[in-house]
Design a protein around this nucleic acid. Structure first.
Lengths: 342, 342
DNA sequence: TTGAAAGCGTTACCAA
DNA sequence: TTGGTAACGCTTTCAA
């Protein structure tokens, strides 16, 4: 069934049916009702491909995220869910593209075949060549995260620098003098992941400011890497009494490592970092952390993109978020006595 | 740039360019190379909407999952990620539809506007009206999960009945005589969620067979509900020494509740259930559980759907999976002495 | 207020 | 081995 069929049954032309559908030109009440009745009766819905071909808009946005090779973290998955929700609320569908590298077939399809009106980029790198590709084909995009030069971009980001700083200050205020930093995997750091770089930068800066002894580690995105990383931390510097982590997937392993080392959280050892709240609340004791506002960020990203699609010449906009640290149960005063273990 | 432009520059007709692209009819080596050179030079890619309109295939599959209202569990998110990966491997894109109810706009768009060639359904109910809608518009689909009457359907499912039974047997073998069952939220049970129903059925049956005392609980999909549920369990029957859970999101809360009640896992209390391995390994002690093979299931679902799309008359196929229990560290012999606490 | 018809960029059939 | 051309189903301009 197509628009011609509707037109025939309603005794009007196809264009009139089209205008009833789009509302782009006035249609008399009588005709409109007649047509609407036929549409409802037959449950007609216009074909998306034909519509996209004719008017150049797909009403679909692309969500570009890295392939599972590196494992999905809970945070990434949270973003996906929330972007899809927010897009649905604006009557946009979301096409997923699991592409980190610009050479990826799926990414190429999205861009080159014009399957989407615009794209949301996740897992940003400081120098992100995906922007060049998007710009070169004229596809509007919004990033979740920001590059090294975010001045004129469209993005919604988390101020990882400030967040990591806040974590250090929180721990230093509690009297901790030796603090470790658990970052994302080295491979991602080397690839230029902005959260890893900016977080590290903030941690290092604040540690220097407060004169605390610090070491930084890269850690795989899974529990067993977290456990191994913690063993390394205590081996390298047994006097360590606290850590800051950006690595949500490793969190359970970090806790396990502490338990095995006989360090009680928060009595002997404090843990904090940047983690989505729902994961922070899963561990025991619940994690004192800067909660990643995945829902808000997903919504903002979609809103920005839709705005950009509706107003191609609108000036670039962005949102830099720096949520406060939610005090839960994983941090406490540095223990005065020696927290020795075997 | 379009196919006409390529044709002009290569000095051939549009149809010949099209056939070079699709390979659906032989083209002489000379012409092919001439055309291919122009294509590469200009970086031409055919427009997806036009192609879909002309040949009736979008090369996109829809992934239908419930809205975030009920929170995404890690398992659901795992499925999404793995389906997208598997689809990309077959050069299909994935369109997400956050729709539980059939009335949902996004679901309607997917079906009615023919944005996809077929669909994968997640979070199945025993009676799932989404099938009726899909069938009524002639859209092929594959379910992750199975209805009450899966005989002639296309699906890949987990044998929750057998899995829950295996959990009970495992615990009974260890000497546990009083076991609780922690299910998904009551709202989902009432809605007819198949995993909740079949899991409950398997648990109840095995508990009866083994003559163990049992109680069953519904529990919200989050940590604090898990903690509350555990308190209820111990309040209702302090002699409980083990539990089986299908509720992954509550797991952290269950553990926390046990810790607060002074029950050490696995010495005083055993925990097992059906959980994706990556989450099972996050908690301490690591969970002995039937690992949900999310990756395999995602891949199988995509493979089945692609097969069905390629062979519209192929007989229905399905895969019923019953992964073995992975022994980790959360179960042990029932404690002989009274495991008393305040 | 409405209709006719020319696109939109492909595919695939029919001829040559 | 290739070219011409009619679909595919919609939107939108031009006329009435």
């Amino acid at each position: 069934m197509n628009i011609g069929e509707i037109a025939k049954r309603a005794g009007v032309s196809r264009s009139t049916v089209s205008y009833v559908l789009s509302g782009k030109r006035p249609v008399s009440d009588g005709t409109r009702q007649k047509i609407q009745r036929v549409i409802d009766e037959l449950g007609y819905q216009p074909n998306a491909s034909a519509r996209a071909l004719a008017n150049g808009r797909t009403n679909t946005i692309g969500l570009v995220f890295p392939p599972a090779g590196n494992h999905y973290t809970g945070m990434q998955l949270d973003f996906i869910g929330n972007v899809v929700e927010a897009a649905a609320a604006q009557d946009y569908d979301v096409l997923l593209s699991p592409s980190g590298m610009d050479s990826d077939r799926s990414f190429q399809r999205l861009l080159g075949e014009r399957r989407v009106d615009g794209a949301i980029l996740m897992e940003l790198r400081l120098q992100d060549d995906r922007f060049d590709h998007l710009n070169s084909v004229g596809l509007p995009s919004v990033a979740i995260g920001r590059t090294a030069h975010p001045e004129n971009g469209w993005w919604v980001g988390l101020d990882h620098t400030a967040l990591a700083e806040a974590c250090v200050h929180h721990l230093a205020d509690l009297g901790h003098r030796t603090i470790a930093f658990v970052n994302r995997p080295e491979q991602l750091l080397r690839a230029g992941y902005e959260s890893a770089h900016r977080g590290l930068e903030g941690f290092t800066k604040a540690a220097a400011e407060r004169g605390v002894t610090s070491r930084t580690y890269c850690c795989g995105d899974d529990a067993s890497s977290g456990q191994a990383c913690l063993e390394r931390i205590l081996h390298d510097e047994p006097a360590t009494t606290a850590l800051v982590t950006l690595n949500e997937a490793a969190l359970g392993g970090l806790y396990r490592g502490l338990a095995k080392a006989g360090r009680h959280v928060p009595r002997d050892f404090s843990v904090t970092g940047v983690v989505a709240s729902r994961w922070a609340e899963t561990v025991t004791p619940q994690l004192t952390a800067a909660d990643v506002p995945a829902e808000q960020m997903g919504r903002l990203a979609v809103d920005l993109l839709v705005e950009r699609l509706d107003h191609p010449d609108a000036p670039a906009r962005h949102h830099l978020l720096a949520p406060p640290i939610s005090l839960r149960a994983s941090t406490g005063p540095a223990s005065t006595g020696p927290a020795s273990t075997g």
